[in-house]
Measured scan of single mutants.
Amino acid sequence: MATGGRRGAAAAPLLVAVAALLLGAAGHLYPGEVCPGMDIRNNLTRLHELENCSVIEGHLQILLMFKTRPEDFRDLSFPKLIMITDYLLLFRVYGLESLKDLFPNLTVIRGSRLFFNYALVIFEMVHLKELGLYNLMNITRGSVRIEKNNELCYLATIDWSRILDSVEDNYIVLNKDDNEECGDICPGTAKGKTNCPATVINGQFVERCWTHSHCQKVCPTICKSHGCTAEGLCCHSECLGNCSQPDDPTKCVACRNFYLDGRCVETCPPPYYHFQDWRCVNFSFCQDLHHKCKNSRRQGCHQYVIHNNKCIPECPSGYTMNSSNLLCTPCLGPCPKVCHLLEGEKTIDSVTSAQELRGCTVINGSLIINIRGGNNLAAELEANLGLIEEISGYLKIRRSYALVSLSFFRKLRLIRGETLEIGNYSFYALDNQNLRQLWDWSKHNLTITQGKLFFHYNPKLCLSEIHKMEEVSGTKGRQERNDIALKTNGDQASCENELLKFSYIRTSFDKI
């Protein structure tokens, strides 16, 4: 039985969820670079991206490699990797027998973001014989899940209580170790020597080791999670996991709180800001991140802002960003909400898709409305799209047979046209069989910064309504002859009103 693990408890099935942008060198404390989270699957090609990484700022997932063999891993080693800020997950990587050479110096898994409450997941690794993470000293947050690894031993010899604050939620089941077939031998045991430290858990006094050649490092209890030197002297209180010299914040392997210019500090002093819960960055760093993602459509890219001495992905609820200094300031009234469309555009074809934009005031991208039916549609669209004030790209209304009016965009005031449909149009209306009105132009103002209007096959939309939009939106004169079809717009509506004058002759039985 794995020490510190839980057996036999019912657990939810383990679901495996399925960018080499360097964020800056980590400095003297770390020998390499800070790398983003990685999802490495199918083959070993991307694994080489770990070569210079000291910190993975995010998670590391290595999974679904069915053609790899043990010899493929023999020359692979990433000794610079010290810390993973989120979680480490391995799933069905064939041929991998140990992690001792792959990650010989991995010391800390912070667990800032977890995989279903777990910071370390080893699942269905069919050839893994031992973990071998002999320098792993601290899992700051989260638990361990090690399950269905039929060859995995050296679990009962690990004292997880020396690595985690609590072992109650560890789930370590259905491994070879369960069948008591392992016969784990710690260093020196074969020669009758006791080389590794022994600890007591559940009444068992057991030597602690990761492999037959690597003991588990056990520091004096007084050192807590700070770690200790090879001689057993406690590291500085700002260290986490390990250090090369005692009581020196510049000799830590990793930091308990924050890293700044080669030393570990309790908090980031001005003019620095907390970033990702582990390091200090200056304003320029946060500003660069903001600008890199301002026009990016890459998933996970955030326009970072500053709030409460932190550089964070977005302002919290009730705050909006001051564009001059990136500071989050309290909103006066309802907060603006910028919604970034991942692929640059979004099609609204149902109430469900409209709900995804609920509360958005600025759309960074283009909207395509293609709704053919739905219950209580006008009210639903207004509830979900009615706060949109600005669209950076274009607005396209296409084959939306259920629409009679666009009044559900009740606050839309600006279409920038930074991206144009077919390279020309910022407003595009095609084949809307029941569209009769755009907006009530006596109450609604709309500016279209650039781009043209396109109207074709809107049989109940009168040309007068379209011409009014040209005047109000500032697009009059931009359109070419064929942009607004004269014969297919309003051709099934009563669009022309003329005053009919009647004269009559009164007659009676005795007068003409």
Rank of each mutant, 00 (worst) to 15 (best):
S161P: 03
C243Q: 01
C280R: 00
K217T: 07
D288M: 12
C264L: 00
N52M: 00
H48V: 10
S161Y: 14
P70N: 04
K80M: 08
P330T: 07
M65A: 12
L240F: 04
I306E: 03
V281D: 00
Q204L: 07
A119H: 00
P249F: 02
G37D: 08
Q299I: 14
S323K: 05
L99E: 00
C315Q: 03
I109S: 00
R162E: 11
S225P: 14
N170C: 05
L164T: 10
N257F: 11
C186P: 15
P70K: 11
G192W: 12
M65C: 03
Y319P: 01
L88G: 00
A198S: 10
L240D: 06
S317D: 07
S237E: 13
K176L: 02
P336E: 11
P104T: 01
S98V: 02
L155H: 15
C255G: 00
V206L: 11
A156P: 08
T68I: 07
L88S: 01
T68Q: 09
V218T: 08
P70S: 04
V200N: 14
D184S: 08
I163Q: 02
V144G: 01
T140L: 09
L289E: 13
F91V: 07
Y273F: 07
T107L: 06
E238T: 03
V206F: 15
R297K: 07
G262L: 04
I84Y: 00
A254I: 02
V206P: 13
N138P: 01
G58V: 00
Q245P: 04
M125V: 05
I158H: 06
E97F: 14
E97Y: 06
F66H: 03
Y319S: 02
L240Y: 07
G192F: 14
P36V: 03
G132S: 06
L60R: 00
P31H: 12
S324M: 12
P336Y: 11
L327G: 04
D165Y: 12
L131F: 05
I222V: 04
P36Y: 12
G58P: 01
S77G: 13
E314P: 05
K129M: 10
L44D: 13
F205T: 07
F91H: 04
R256N: 08
N42A: 09
N105D: 03
E168T: 09
S237Y: 12
R41A: 08
P104V: 01
F283S: 06
I122V: 08
F116T: 02
T68F: 13
E238Q: 08
K148T: 15
H28F: 07
G333N: 13
H302A: 12
I62K: 00
G111T: 00
I82W: 07
L64K: 14
L131R: 01
F205H: 10
L136A: 01
C328E: 02
I56F: 00
R297M: 08
C255Q: 00
C331N: 14
P270M: 13
T85C: 05
L164N: 05
R110Q: 07
I185F: 14
P104F: 01
I163P: 01
P249K: 02
R162K: 10
K80I: 06
V144A: 08
T68W: 10
D39K: 13
L152G: 00
Q303E: 13
L164Q: 04
C228P: 02
L81P: 00
C328R: 01
T199L: 13
P330R: 15
L131P: 01
F115M: 04
W160D: 01
F285P: 01
C234V: 01
I82A: 12
I40F: 15
Q216H: 11
V34S: 06
C315T: 03
N150L: 08
A156H: 08
L289R: 08
E180Q: 11
T250E: 10
S143T: 06
E180D: 03
E57Y: 10
Q204I: 02
S317I: 03
T85G: 05
L81K: 00
S112V: 07
H226D: 11
I185Y: 09
R110A: 08
L50K: 00
F116P: 01
Y30P: 03
K251M: 15
C35R: 02
V305M: 13
V34G: 04
D72N: 14
E130K: 04
G188I: 14
E51L: 04
F283R: 14
Y304H: 05
R256P: 04
C53S: 00
C209T: 02
L50C: 02
C186G: 08
E147H: 05
F275K: 02
L29P: 09
Q276E: 10
I185T: 05
C328W: 01
Q216C: 04
Y134H: 01
R41V: 15
P249W: 03
R279S: 12
G262F: 12
Y259H: 10
P270A: 14
M125P: 00
S323R: 02
T189A: 08
P330N: 07
P187S: 06
K193N: 10
K251A: 00
G241V: 04
L289H: 14
R297Q: 11
S166R: 07
P79W: 06
K294Y: 01
D178E: 13
N308F: 08
I163V: 08
T45K: 12
R92T: 06
L106D: 00
L136F: 08
L155C: 14
K193M: 13
N42H: 14
G111V: 00
N42D: 08
L114S: 03
F258I: 03
L60C: 04
P334S: 08
P330I: 14
